[in-house]
């Protein structure tokens, strides 16, 4: 069942097209990664989903309701963490957490206390005195303490230390085990790799790749390291071979997945001593797509 759906969404700011006919769909219970370089349009997409920005064309819906028209109804069941967390300087963290949780219409004191403890936040301090990471914690705790069905998180860990990042990941796994759906925009690829079932890559306002992580990898390339008795001749002319590199274990390269069979056949003529293959890391994927 799809909980969140974007169809042919276009958003223009004056003449500038920030989003150009993008599409994606998130199913119930999924953790959906949303990645792309700075200024690609991630935050803009999320703001359209929240009904804060109005779509120029196309549709965005959550729970089958229109993101713009039915915003209030939708927001009773979603929780959001903004990318840039700006808080009210003269309210304490505790006050802000309570306010935001109440605005969503839920109220769960014991979970709030647990989260404050887990994230090690002092809720009695004025927000003005919080560091970036602590402001982020306030937004995270208020989102995680709400009873929502969909969680929309815009770079939720960009200011957190590694320890807190781990706490956050635990919380995401816990939400997932309770059947919640999560849209996670992030620049931290190891995090996306660990948490997400599906990923969309956005660049310059266009979705350039979508799918499960393994689908994305298969669509692309595989890392291969070989060592042969005889030197391999003219390897760089073989179709589907990229990023050739000599390393002390032999030769490393990236091979287009569909050419993998042919390449291995070619190499085997030179007496293979060692052959290792492993999928591209998301980082390699990412760099390939971003360039």
């Amino acid at each position: 069942m799809s909980v969140l759906k974007i169809t042919n969404l276009t958003k223009k700011f004056g003449k500038f097209t920030a989003l150009n006919r993008i599409n994606f769909e998130m199913q119930k219970g999924e953790v959906y990664g949303f990645i792309g370089p700075n200024g690609a349009g991630k935050t803009t997409t999320i703001r359209v989903l929240l009904g804060i920005l109005k779509a120029t064309e196309g549709e965005a819906s959550i729970f089958g309701m229109d993101a713009w028209r039915d915003a209030v109804e939708i927001h009773k069941r979603i929780a959001y963490v903004p990318g840039d967390v700006n808080l009210w300087g003269n309210l304490t963290g505790g006050e802000v957490i309570d306010l935001l949780v109440r605005l969503r219409g839920s109220n769960n004191k014991s979970r709030r206390e647990q989260l404050i403890e887990k994230f090690d936040l002092d809720p009695s301090k004025k927000c003005r005195t919080y560091s970036k990471g602590n402001r982020q914690k306030v937004a995270l705790i208020s989102a995680l303490a709400s009873d929502a069905d969909v969680y929309i998180l815009d770079e939720p860990t960009s200011g957190l230390d590694p320890l807190m990042e781990k706490v956050f990941q635990e919380c995401v796994f816990e939400l997932k085990s309770r059947g919640k759906s999560i849209l996670l925009s992030s620049h931290i690829l190891s995090e996306v790799e660990k948490l997400c079932d599906k990923v969309s890559i956005i660049r310059q306002g266009k979705i350039i790749e979508s799918g499960t992580l393994s689908e994305l990898r298969h669509l692309t390339r595989t890392n291969v390291i070989v060592e042969t008795k005889k030197p391999i001749e003219a390897l760089d002319t073989v179709k589907g071979v990229h990023s050739l590199n000599r390393c002390n274990q032999g030769i490393s390269m990236q091979v287009d997945t569909e050419e993998l069979g042919n390449v291995i056949k070619y190499i085997s003529e030179f007496d293979i001593v060692k052959l290792e293959s492993f999928p591209l890391t998301l980082e390699e994927l990412f760099i390939r797509h971003y360039k």
Binding site: P82, N86, G105
Partner: peptide, 12 residues
């Protein structure tokens, strides 16, 4: 950018 906290809640 603080209105988005409010509008992301169930607030019209």
């Amino acid at each position: 950018d603080r209105c988005e906290h409010l509008l992301a809640g169930a607030v019209s």
